[in-house]
Amino acid sequence: MTTDILVLGGGIAGIQSTLDLAEMGFKVHLVERLSSIGGKMAQLDKTFPTNDCAI
């Protein structure tokens, strides 16, 4: 029995879940297939509708 949580995928959704859980005090294991996290969002230059930088 454990309260650790596994998050599979380090894109924007996985990162948000991971940070939420970690902030709540749970130990999170974030597994990402590529060598760094960020996913598709890290490839975006800017985001709509505010034209903010994605990274």
């Binding site: 940070l19 749970f26 130990k27 996290i37």
Partner: peptide, 17 residues
């Protein structure tokens, strides 16, 4: 992203499946 790398409650397993 930076926060994920340094948060004490997060174990980051990149390049993993």
């Amino acid at each position: 992203m930076l926060d994920v790398g340094r948060h004490p409650n997060i174990s980051l397993l990149a390049y993993s499946e």
